[in-house]
Nucleic acid binder design. Structure first.
Lengths: 220, 220
DNA sequence: ATCACTCTATACAGACCTTTCAATAGACTT
DNA sequence: AAGTCTATTGAAAGGTCTGTATAGAGTGAT
């Protein structure tokens, strides 16, 4: 072997950063090799299937990195609630440090490419599910029933992603912080088993309502 | 004047739909005029500033439309909680009906273009704030203090947007439904004034922690 | 010296957004 | 009813950038 190339890593790192800021479609390959100070030919040497493969590898790489981060956060933290709070504040500080530029690369890739590449969408889905599973198992350890844990974990990730998007748009950490508070409330509700009653109610009302009304009336 | 042109409307409608599915960067002007069955020359006649202006008008238009929808939902509904539930189920059904293609155009535009056009980002921010304000005033009517209402409303919109993104990625309405349950829990917490204690705790811990730890350790 | 790996360089065909300008069409004025 | 005027449309071309592809030169270890 020649030298273990760090060129591929530089390409992946540059891609990740650019996908976070500009999304998948908004980022050109030329921009990537420029930022990664990588030779043009290396792109198709390391990623023979082109941009799509690059997208998949970015998603997988960052997805696993962040999953580990979530896991470690649960292990190190004193309580589940503190762990969740730390996750949200970490996202908030990253946003502030990057002048609200660095979003989540999975969202950046998925939203742009999910309708054109099913590979990419599927990769994103797997990553999201792994985050949810990691979070859920942390919640189970804290005493939340397995039945509820997955729903609570899903709502936390929703709040995290949505809060990140809204914080970037409004250039304020407030959405992320509100989502953090809501996540804590959700955990508390699950611990006191109130959530179970709620989700049951929701299921019943679905059964009775039949067709869901959408309420598409215009403003007066 | 010639006839009140519905050509501009067709262009805007097609743009909105395409931005919802493919995002701002992922949608070409050619695709827009094709789907809107509009003549090419009309594009720069009605939108002299090009794609950016088109994006702004799409955001404003859909933003106001959806804000009205939120407002009406609160007026018509029996309770705040039912109103919020309806909002989430409406998004879920729209997702299912469109085979998980139709996301939120504001997110689709903002994520792609916020770093390249500050006009676009600002327009999106105003819309999001108007949604939060509408939701918050509905919560105040239901008895939540003005101080909490805005935070709760923000967390609901975060959950709605994040849940929509996650539901599209995973091709399941479950994220949206979990976010719905969490939103209801948040409202309940605010009504019983637990949220206030939570947000105060968060503020204190911020003061004591000083620099926020990010926890960037790698997996073992 | 062989060999696999990595890089350089160039080329291409197509899509992108934008701009221009002349031709058309419709409605209002007289 | 004719003519004017403005709003709308048509076609074309601009230049930049896109992602993809190829082929040969450099590199270092075995």
């Amino acid at each position: 072997m020649a030298s273990r190339s760090n060129t591929k890593d530089r390409i992946l790192e540059a891609s990740t950063l650019l996908f976070r800021r500009q999304g998948y479609e908004g980022t050109g390959l030329k921009e990537i090799v420029a930022k990664g100070r990588a030779p043009w030919g290396s792109l198709y040497h390391f990623f023979p299937q082109g941009k799509e493969q690059l997208g998949v590898e970015v998603v997988m790489r960052y997805g696993e990195y962040y999953r580990c981060l979530l896991e470690n956060n649960f292990v190190e933290s004193s309580s589940v609630i503190q762990a969740v709070r730390d996750i949200f504040t970490a996202s908030a500080t990253e946003l502030v440090d990057s002048d609200f530029a660095n979003g989540c690369p999975i969202v950046g890739v998925a939203l742009d490419a999910m309708n054109s590449s099913s590979y990419l969408r599927q990769a994103c889905a797997e990553i999201i599910n792994s985050w949810v599973a990691t979070l859920a198992s942390g919640l189970v350890v804290a005493g939340i029933s397995e039945f509820l844990a997955r729903d609570v974990a899903t709502s936390i990730v929703s709040g995290l992603e949505g809060g990140t998007v809204l914080s970037r748009i409004t250039r304020s950490t407030r959405p992320l912080m509100s989502a953090s508070d809501a996540a804590v409330m959700a955990i508390r509700s699950a611990l006191s088993d109130e959530w179970r009653r709620e989700s049951s109610t929701r299921l019943e009302s679905l059964l009775f309502e039949g067709d869901l009304k959408t309420g598409h009336d215009q403003c007066s």
